[in-house]
């Protein structure tokens, strides 16, 4: 990360305060690498984050402007901000699974509906880990957490027939993908594509939480155990096996095919202004 860190990240926040062995760093690094590959400078990007591990550990790491919303609201703040920002600025959000698919889901859906430009990386640690490890909306079946002591028995949102990315697709997203954090160059390639979309992009990335998920679900805090476990349950789309939990790859690439939120708002306002001037207002 050294070259990238020096160029884009604040020394005060790197290394981050994530637990040692946490896979969040892989997600973070992949995104910064994709940003660098596309030649963005620090002031081209406004970086928003959520609460939870994914939000807290990435907040204020970016050398440019950075903001963190309360639980689930960052998508609404980002959509308002999108209206006021110069069109060429890019919004990037790093958020958690609980934030995006639970408490903030309604706001996320409406950002999707309006195709508001934001590249959202959902860094998924498979539950509520910063609060000690409770189950969430992507926790795999049977997994023991502090709030599912008999194993997770509720349906989750990555199972076939109930995939959250399909909901987002129908809701109007223009770029959707899923990966695991150890996907390396493939993940970076996907993130580059997500960033090139002037619209709503979401990349769902599962990463290993050693401290809580590893301990509760696998009975091991050893990074190697959970890294291996996640990797072995991820397969590219079309190559799924019986025990595949995460089908990885690009689910939808309709980049730049539909008007972006702030763009159609600007165009409409211009049109109304031409027709009506400022009649009715003093």
């Amino acid at each position: 990360m050294d070259y990238l860190a020096t160029k884009y990240l604040r020394s005060r926040k790197i290394p981050s305060s994530a637990c040692s062995g946490c896979g969040l760093g892989q997600c973070h690094k992949a995104l910064v690498k994709a940003i660098d590959d596309l030649g963005y400078e620090r002031n081209d990007i406004i970086w928003g984050t959520s609460i939870g591990c994914a939000g807290r550990q990435t907040f204020a790491t970016w050398k440019g402007d950075s903001f963190a919303g309360t639980h689930g609201r960052v998508y609404a703040i980002a959509r308002g901000l999108r209206l006021a920002l110069a069109p060429e600025k890019r919004l990037v959000l790093t958020v958690g699974d609980g934030d995006a698919f639970g408490i903030g889901f309604n706001h996320l859906l409406h950002a999707v509906r309006t195709n508001a430009q934001m590249t959202v990386m959902v860094c998924d640690n498979l539950g509520y880990q910063s609060t000690g490890g409770q189950y969430g909306w992507t926790t795999p079946p049977g997994v023991v957490t502090d709030s599912s002591p008999y194993g997770m028995f509720e349906p989750n949102w990555v199972q076939p027939g109930r995939d959250v990315l399909m909901i987002l697709k129908e809701a109007g997203a223009t770029f959707l993908a899923r990966h695991v954090s150890m996907d390396g160059g493939v993940l970076v390639e996907t993130l580059r594509k997500a960033l090139r979309n002037n619209g709503f992009s979401l990349v769902h990335v599962v990463y290993p939480c050693t401290t809580n998920f590893g301990k509760n679900a696998l009975g091991s805090r050893k990074p190697v155990d959970i890294f291996r476990w996640i990797k072995s349950h991820a397969k590219p789309l079309g190559l799924e096996k019986e025990d595949t939990i995460w089908r990885t790859g690009i689910y939808l690439d309709a980049s730049n095919s539909r008007p972006e939120f702030s763009q159609f708002m600007r165009e409409k306002v211009e049109e109304i202004r031409r027709r009506h001037g400022n009649e009715g207002a003093h």
């Binding site: 406004i46 050398k63 402007d65 950075s66 309360t70 901000l81």
Partner: peptide
């Protein structure tokens, strides 16, 4: 935000 000031705001 968006002025290049390196601004930070959070909860």
């Amino acid at each position: 935000l968006g002025m290049g000031a390196g601004a930070l705001c959070s909860d």
